[in-house]
Design a protein around this nucleic acid. Structure first.
Lengths: 260, 260
DNA sequence: TCAATAGTATTGTCATATAAATGACTGAGG
DNA sequence: CCTCAGTCATTTATATGACAATACTATTGA
């Protein structure tokens, strides 16, 4: 079998390399992972494992995966290494490649969060919201004490984009602006680790967006965000935290209403 | 060159596969990563990049790395895939493999945190402490509302181990018990994502331990932890959060005293 | 029954060959 | 001298087959 035939095998089997079932908004996040053949395999197997299609402890013979995907050993091994790094599988000689127990999955990984977020189970969404409720108000409080003028400018810029998107009813742009806002808020704390918590926020926003496809354009949407910026700019940590809590509570309320 | 000669190349070059410079306590964390030849390469290159030995944007020819390590393409490629997944490098044809900008590093990864924590720079330690100060009190508050009897049992068990370690002046056991305690506390919140925040706590504990090799056995050490368990068991979220804040503040105080 | 051992299946590693991508160069044409 | 299309060279991407290492399984011998 030639290389050309193999890759056509892969492409022809829609279930194997389908770019994923997520919305177009998530494409950017996937681009990094999907770079290259191995990335497609990682994405595909990652989704399968996370969705419970394989049971923990189950053995995944590499040989059969080679047959199924029609790829070379090299590519499969690269994919397995990445999956092992995420704690999803564990390969040992003679024993085969086994699905790891869920407790060893490294959930604080943007790919893992994306895969889990697109699961039909809503309980993960609640967990994401809880983490946001812990992280974001605290972040806003620190941000109020540390924000630079540039930080404030970024927040206002995101706010403008949000207003524009709302005016145009552009759901796509609204999500991007929302994300940019929360990223800017985290960044204003000037703590690298907290900035990386964006992966949780992004997963939460996108997962919610996949579920409630409308109705989140309530009138107060922009003004509630604006209240956070005002408090941060004024250096009022208490008010910033309170405004962030109010925002998250409103978002939760909107989501549960939409779910009815 | 035969396989045997190659692996001896690797072993003979002490700088290349030295199991790392961290304390024996960190060995467990490394075991997963160091499984296999590729894992050693990942660890080695990861440390180099994180330590700033390579500048962002700098090109890392795979060919020269093959020469340096004396390994096969397969192994190097697997290592590169894992590093790329962690956001440390980005490989493109013709351009070579380039060191990625720090902003794209995925810091919420146990390996990254371990590498960064063993850097001489103390500012990262401060950031770890800030995250703990945000995450742990909130986690304790939720834990008080949700803890099962089993959760309390685990907390008390860790507490006992802590007391025993203190009595025996066993620093190694003390750290493990401390870690077990904080893991149990996070688990008591019954939120998978929060449980995974253990990687931040572990990195913080181990990094601090590498710096202050003594003196943290202050008498109140166990009792301050016990106060958290009591509050959690009693279902008093407010007290649990307060006790956790007190614990973290004391730890920070001890560390800064030791640093003088 | 048990212990040592040979067999066997599976991943781990290596070496080499070919494909693909892309920046750099070159030369013709204006 | 400048522009641009085409070609080239370099580097990673992928494929493939061979052999090594490992650990479970079954068998053999006492």
């Amino acid at each position: 079998m030639t290389a050309a035939e193999q890759s056509s095998d892969l492409v022809s089997d829609a279930d194997v390399v389908a770019p994923s079932t997520s919305t177009p908004t998530a494409r950017a996040a996937e681009q990094q992972l999907l770079r290259g053949l191995h990335g497609q395999i990682v994405d595909n197997l990652g989704r399968r494992i996370v969705s419970g299609q394989y049971a923990p402890g189950e053995s995944l013979s590499q040989e059969s995966l080679l047959d199924e995907f029609g790829i070379s050993r090299t590519v499969l091994r690269e994919a397995m290494r990445v999956l092992a790094d995420k704690g999803l599988v564990s390969s040992r000689q003679r024993l085969g490649t086994q699905i790891a127990a869920r407790t060893s999955w490294r959930l604080l990984d943007s790919d893992m969060l994306r895969w889990l977020g697109s699961q039909p189970d809503d309980s993960f969404l609640d967990q994401l919201a809880e983490v946001r409720a812990i992280v974001e108000p605290a972040s806003a409080r620190f941000a109020a004490e540390r924000r630079s003028d540039e930080d404030v400018a970024k927040l206002r810029s995101a706010l403008d984009a949000m207003a524009t998107a709302a005016a145009n009813s552009d759901a796509e742009a609204a999500i991007e602006a929302d994300l940019a806002f929360h990223r800017a808020l985290l960044d204003s704390m000037h703590n690298e680790l907290m900035s990386r918590m964006e992966i949780v926020i992004e997963a939460g926003l996108r997962a919610r967006n996949e579920r409630v496809h409308a109705g989140q354009h309530v009138p107060e949407f922009v003004s509630v965000h604006a209240a956070i910026v005002d408090a941060v700019e004024a250096g009022d940590g208490e008010a910033a935290a309170a405004a962030t809590i109010a925002l998250l509570e409103q978002a939760t309320r909107d989501t549960s209403i939409a779910a009815d």
